[in-house]
């Protein structure tokens, strides 16, 4: 039984059957990659996990509980954090504040009216945020305006924000899309390090095969809204069906 169990999920947009009969099981403490050509339904599937989309059929169970019908913030409070394709951070706030918000969310829940508390009295939150920044090598940037950072650093900050909540499942939506090679490699190293150091399950959607094969323990190939095959990375590389559906028509590994 995996931490994330997807059964028979289907989703239709008008005349387009975006997903049909998707079965997926993400085992605890593994890195599970979902790959597939453009339009295969990868992002649609991810959006079904986080409360953005409601599938027409099927079930999505996280740790024995259904996530369907819940709002994004409720799902986050269950222990699922999401990293977006374009880094979503609080651009108008500084880096330390960016770090503090998820920590507050984890500690205080979805809403708390702490209008009269002084930031100085929140020592534990500030310390945790600073510690996290240090761990990510961003301590020097703590007072920087978040919007002014490079894309790679924004990504790093976003991942740090997600990790500060100690999520049980981290969802990554093409984390290296649009990044320079150096930034991509940095991100891969960061994710590898996270995987080794933490008890965390990662589900990743990715185009870049280099990223996928450096990180994934298990790979599901999606084509036209259906899982084609699920296997270990070594087997996926040489799988004829995969080559035909995916690797063959775009560029090879």
């Amino acid at each position: 039984m995996g931490i994330l169990e997807v059964k028979n999920v289907g989703k239709r947009f008008g005349g387009l059957q975006a997903l049909s009969n998707v079965e997926l099981s993400v085992k605890e403490n593994t890195c599970h990659a979902i790959i597939g050509p453009n339009g295969a339904g990868k992002s649609t599937l991810l959006n079904c996990f986080v409360g953005k989309l409601m599938p027409d059929t099927g079930s999505v169970m996280f740790d024995g509980q259904s996530v369907l019908g819940r709002t994004p913030y409720e799902i986050n409070q269950m222990g699922i954090s999401r990293v977006f394709q374009t880094p979503e951070i609080f651009g108008d706030l500084n880096v330390l504040e960016n770090m503090m918000i998820p920590i507050f969310a984890k500690r205080d829940g979805a809403f708390r009216m702490h209008a009269f508390e002084n930031m100085l009295d929140e020592r534990d939150v500030v310390e945790k945020a600073e510690h996290m920044l240090e761990e990510m090598g961003m301590a020097d940037a703590r007072n920087d305006h978040a919007a002014s950072m490079s894309r790679g650093n924004k990504r790093r900050l976003e991942i740090a924000m997600c990790l500060s909540q100690d999520p049980r499942l981290l969802l990554l939506d093409e984390p290296t899309a649009g990044m320079a090679r150096a930034d991509t490699n940095n991100t891969i190293d960061l994710l590898k390090q996270i995987k080794e150091e933490r008890d965390i399950t990662i589900a990743i959607i990715e185009h870049d095969m280099h990223v996928v094969f450096s990180l994934a323990d298990r790979i599901t190939v999606l084509a036209q809204g259906t899982p084609l095959v699920e296997d270990d990375p070594e087997n996926i590389k040489g799988h004829p069906k995969v080559r035909e559906a995916y690797l063959g028509e775009t560029q090879a590994v």
């Binding site: 709002t71 913030y73 986050n76 609080f90 998820p102 969310a105 809403f111 924000m161």
Partner: peptide
């Protein structure tokens, strides 16, 4: 980002 950070 707020919604996906667990805040309503």
């Amino acid at each position: 980002r707020m919604n996906y950070t667990g805040l309503n």
